[in-house]
Amino acid sequence: MSNSLIDIVNITKQYGHIKALRNISLSINKSDFVTIFGANGAGKSTLLKLISLQSRQTSGEINLSGVPYKKLGNAFKRRLGVISHQPFLYENLTAYENLLFYASLYDVKSPKKVVDDLLKRVDLFKRKDDLIRTYSRGMLQRASIIRSLVHNPDIILLDEPYTGLDTVASKVLTSLLKDQLSDSKTIVMVTHDIQVGLELSSKIVIMKKGEVAFNENISAIDKSNFENIYISQVTDKD
């Protein structure tokens, strides 16, 4: 019996006559950290949108523990946390108000305690009553990360979370992801940052023109040569 948590089976996504994804099949196991690389336009973010139910595939199926997504709906959404390059925060609310709002949407028990703990964890507790629009990019990203964790999801999807982060904020994000990984969370990340991807992942996927061009466990990859592998995969051979 397969122990995969998320099964993506022959997924195609078409926008008009443009095929963003072409017959993608991928298995993600529980506690996997999968990093998806690829050039711009390769279909990485589209794939994440399908996994997070933000978009619907043209054909194919996505299953969670063998159950088709369409039968799960809100039960799946409750297990899912999404971190995007967009903050997903209201700039005219404070960090505290934002987090309590999202906690209420997920019906989090003892929301104030959960929010306080998360704010302390990313060193934002002292600024919790400041409006989000007064936050720096790094603070915004930290607030955005804990927003996605407020309901303690066991599947976390990250769409280019390192975009625009300074070194300190990147380190905080990496440390938070390691914490999540040690809690046996399943993580799927889209990024262009090869170093981070190699450091955290248990599986690497490279996408090219809407297809999976490379899919290996990290143990089977020569990390010192990965940049060459990546370039050879995303470069047109013809």
Binding site: Q54, K77, F88
Partner: peptide
């Protein structure tokens, strides 16, 4: 800030 997307994910 993509907030509508975020509340649709809830």
């Amino acid at each position: 800030g993509g907030n509508f997307e975020a509340i649709l994910l809830a």
